[in-house]
């Protein structure tokens, strides 16, 4: 049956509005095991959960549970930027082409502009803000600073997050690995050579346990 545990969740039965209250009794029948699961599903619709209209959801961002009002069509990027004021992730294209919105989701680099906010519930989301504790930058962020892996800096949060994921997966990347890992991040200013240097430098430091 539908696992309705969050306040605003509406069970699958809400689809069948217009079918009258008979639905409820059918559901009762099902739990009683009188008809098959499949037959029940045909009448009731599949198991699951519906969200429609403006809804408050909880997102776990940088270790904190954040409540945020979204619509089903709200992207994760918009939820972060427009509602939670987490503006590290940038909107460069809103279409998956530029990587400026890259965040980590359960440790993997993904694009926040191509993810629905409602689909990010229950996931561990880390934005660039979550990579540094208080004022201390991660070794990779430090390397970006020292090697000048940025100019206007608009693409930088996305590159930093993508490179963080890259190094987690491959602590000793070759130049080609780095290029492959960052191929989805567009930098119009052309910082790539310095970014490559930064990632290589950070990799070295991190391997030494820095």
């Amino acid at each position: 049956m539908s696992k309705s545990n969050s306040s605003n969740k509406i069970s699958r039965r809400s689809f069948l509005k217009g079918m009258g209250s008979g639905i409820l009794s059918t559901a009762t029948l099902t739990t009683g095991g009188l008809i098959s699961k499949e037959a029940a599903a045909r009448i009731l619709g599949p198991e699951g959960e519906t969200i429609s209209g403006r809804t408050v959801i909880t997102l776990k961002v940088n270790g904190k549970a954040r409540r945020v009002a979204v619509e089903p069509r709200t992207t994760l990027l918009s939820a972060l930027r427009d509602r939670l004021d987490i503006t590290g992730p940038k909107e460069g294209c809103d279409r998956g082409h530029c990587g400026a919105c890259t965040v980590l989701m359960d440790g993997k680099a993904v694009l926040a502009c191509m993810t629905l906010a409602v689909d990010a519930r229950g996931k561990d989301i880390t934005t660039v803000e979550g990579l540094s504790q208080d004022d201390s930058l991660s070794p990779l962020q430090k390397a970006f600073v020292e090697k000048d892996g940025l100019m206007c800096g608009f693409c930088t949060p996305g590159l930093v997050v993508a490179a963080t994921a890259l190094l987690k997966e491959n602590p000793n990347p070759s130049l080609d690995d780095i290029k492959e890992g960052l191929a989805g991040n567009l930098c119009r200013c052309g910082t790539y050579p310095k970014v490559f240097e930064a990632v290589q430098t950070a990799a070295k430091i991190m391997r030494k346990g820095g």
Binding site: D82, Q141, F144, D148, L150
Partner: peptide, 29 residues
């Protein structure tokens, strides 16, 4: 000399606010 840019820490940490990031209270889109 080769010196890192001063705003770099803010930019790599996502703290630097661009026009796109501005969001005063009551702001409309």
């Amino acid at each position: 000399k080769p010196l890192p840019r001063l705003e770099a820490p803010d930019k790599v940490a996502g703290r630097a606010k661009y026009t796109q990031d501005m969001h005063p209270k009551g702001m409309l889109y």
